[in-house]
Design a protein around this nucleic acid. Structure first.
Length: 353
DNA sequence: AATTCGTGGTA
DNA sequence: TTACCAAGAAT
């Protein structure tokens, strides 16, 4: 099958199998002249970086309900945006989201650039996201290469070179298939194919529109591709978190530094997380007592075993670190997951109010 | 160029 | 329980 033929077959499949997503204008509506909302496309693409559709859905609805457009988001408080992002992970995305919104509102007259190059100059928009927005929102013939596309191309053309070495080769193959007609639908079609048919494990080759053309399928190695370089083992780090409540019910919390792990997020004051036994570092003088249990949490590159210390803090308490958050202002949902897990473990240790 | 950066679902 | 994986970007 020629490249143009492959693209046509895929687009036909997409007409009837496109997933219905909140931020998407489907192929029928698009053919009728509907255009996706640029803000929705940008927001969803950033949220979808290394994140599943299922995890993104509710966050997308909450963000768009609270901040309906880029101007509203640009005017938001940092802490509100970080709190709304809490639990979704990769928090640099939220910091860059705000930087990007403010750059668009301030430097670009409230309009996103309409080219891949212009988009990629913005914070948090890399090669994938720039191409995706250009293709989906502006219907430009840009080649979108995400994990789905890499997998689909590796199988369709039986590329046995392991990732990430194979990335340039897979990008070139994907570019070959990018049509000048309806490139936005094409980009979403390849990704939908990867997400629903050409899945990482046990791909549904039997119902794949590209079954007849797939080289890996012909060789019986579809499920073995793409090959990947072995990854490094994750070490285990140890730490202690301090969860303190003042007599009036206020909680002692700390805004984490902008850079690094959980950067910009609210959290419990804590020791360093290292592979050695943590050195005690209570944020305020009090009778800290250990909980009987610890939080186990796995980050991208290490496992964490987080011990939890709790204390009732006196009314006139002046902490060395962190600040008190009023009991009514504190929302556990503002915390990143590891901190919320610690709170869930500890809350029973405090007297009910 | 290699590291860093989250989380929840799944086998 | 463990390891793998997902619409990657920044440094």
């Amino acid at each position: 099958m020629r490249d143009a033929e492959l693209s046509r077959v895929l687009l036909n499949w997409y007409e009837t199998h496109a997933r219905d997503l909140p931020w998407r204008v489907g192929p029928a509506a698009r053919a009728a002249g509907m255009v996706p909302d640029l803000y929705a496309v940008w927001l969803s693409e950033v949220m979808l970086q290394q994140t599943t559709v299922a995890a993104v859905r509710d966050y997308f609805h909450r963000f768009t309900a609270r901040w309906p457009d880029v101007a509203a988001l640009a005017s938001a408080e940092d802490g509100d945006v970080m709190g709304e992002w809490a639990g979704l992970g990769y928090y640099a995305r939220a910091r860059n989201l705000l930087k990007c919104a403010r750059a668009v509102a301030g430097d670009h007259g409230g309009r996103f650039p309409d080219t891949r190059e212009g988009l990629q100059a913005l914070p948090g928009i890399g090669p994938y996201t720039a191409a995706a927005i250009a293709a989906i929102a502006f219907d430009r013939a840009e080649t979108v290469v995400d994990g789905n596309v890499e997998r689909v191309m590796a199988r369709l053309f039986a590329v046995e070179t392991p990732l990430p070495t194979a990335k340039p080769e897979l990008t070139a193959l994907a570019a070959r298939l990018t049509p000048n007609e309806r490139p936005g639908c094409h980009a979403q079609a390849v990704m939908d194919l990867g997400a629903t048919i050409c899945t990482p494990k046990s791909p549904a080759c039997g119902i794949c529109p590209w079954m007849g053309a797939c080289a890996a399928r012909a060789q019986g190695i579809a499920a073995d591709l793409p090959r990947k370089l072995p990854k490094k083992p994750k070490p285990t780090r140890l730490g202690l978190a301090y969860i303190g409540r003042r007599a009036d019910g206020a909680w002692l919390l700390e805004r984490r530094p902008e850079r690094g792990l959980l950067g910009g997020m609210l959290g419990w004051p804590s020791t360093e997380w290292a592979e050695t036994e943590p050195v005690s570092a209570p944020p305020a003088a009090a009778d800290w007592r250990p909980l009987g249990a610890e939080v186990r949490h796995t980050f991208t590159h290490f496992h964490l075993r987080l011990g939890v210390m709790v204390a009732d803090l006196p009314g006139g308490c002046t902490p060395a670190r962190g600040a008190f958050v009023d009991r009514h202002a504190f929302r556990p949902s503002d915390l990143p997951t590891v901190m919320r897990k610690a709170f869930d473990l500890a809350r029973g240790a405090f007297a009910a109010d």
